[in-house]
Design a protein around this nucleic acid. Structure first.
Lengths: 170, 170
DNA sequence: TATTGTTATACTCTATAACTATA
DNA sequence: TATAGTTATAGAGTATAACAATA
């Protein structure tokens, strides 16, 4: 979206914050802004890799989740909880994936309220190819060192736990 | 969007990756997924704080950028470059902000192609209040320790530089 | 009554392409 | 020719509210 800037805009913002007497929060502001920007860069790379497969990241995540479930099948509500997205987002994603014949809806055998989503053969094949592409083109050349990765996992895991994402204290 | 999960879904995904023979990329995958989720949590908090001001994060960022510019004024193209967003996104944001009388468009004095965006008095007042709210309600209680913040800034700055965001090597 | 999921609706941001005006 | 910006159009994700069906 343009040539590199001569200077780091986030470091500049941090200095501006300090200059205005917000020194207490300048560093957390810079860290949070950096997370937002990093996510934007990574999402761009991921969507670029997924585009040839006709998948968005949200839809890939749903397929990948199903590929790890027993029988390639989950209730809609369970997918919503595990992906931490709104139920209507799951409905929307499943609609599109079903249109592409990558998943199928079916009735829960004992609870009539529940809809199950299941990976089709075609869906399983596609998610395997997409995962291989993401592994080699994004995760294997992430731009983070092993130390970076270790620190990110540790710091962000603590953050997510304190934010109420999960209870597991290990 | 739901109660805490009993276990960390990202740690589970990392174990699944390892179990399938993708051990080489399991850790970077987990780190990147954690960044995506953390961004989602933080964006939610930020938008919650900005909602009473009638601002989205994208629009707040534009107002904040203008508040640091000389004269509270920038060319559209410069705002697009500094915010690292598409020119049409800036056009859209300026349209809405102008409708709310928070910014004004004007002609560049010497280059007729260029449109300048300038903060109105009302816009400057609002962005100051919104910044104070973000500082006290988000950045001052970010959920990161001082060490976390230091590590995030360092690691993500290296990533962004290698990704081509900026050239500054300091 | 509570839960599950869908539908309708609306509002973000984003992106491409075509276009105008200016340099 | 190249640049700056707008417009039209499209698509993505997200969210709320109302609703149907089931427990």
């Amino acid at each position: 979206m343009g040539a590199p800037l001569p200077r780091d805009p986030i470091a500049d913002a941090q200095r501006n914050w300090e200059r205005r007497g917000w020194g207490e929060v300048a560093a957390p502001m810079a860290a949070i802004t950096a997370i937002m920007r990093t996510q934007q860069i990574l999402l761009g790379r991921i969507e670029e890799v997924l585009k040839p497969f006709g998948l968005t990241f949200a839809r890939y995540e749903l397929l990948a989740l199903l590929s790890f479930a027993r029988g390639g099948e989950l209730p809609m509500s369970r997918a919503s909880a595990l992906l931490q997205v709104h139920p209507t987002s799951v409905t929307n994603a499943v609609d599109r994936l079903q249109g592409a014949r990558l998943v199928q809806r079916s009735r829960h055998p004992t609870d009539g309220r529940t809809t199950l989503v299941r990976l089709t053969t075609e869906g399983r094949s596609l998610v395997q190819k997409a995962t291989a592409a993401l592994n080699s083109e994004v995760f294997a050349q992430s731009g983070f060192t092993d130390d970076d990765v270790e620190q990110l996992i540790r710091v962000l895991r603590g953050f997510r736990r304190r934010a109420g994402d999960f209870a597991d204290p290990t």
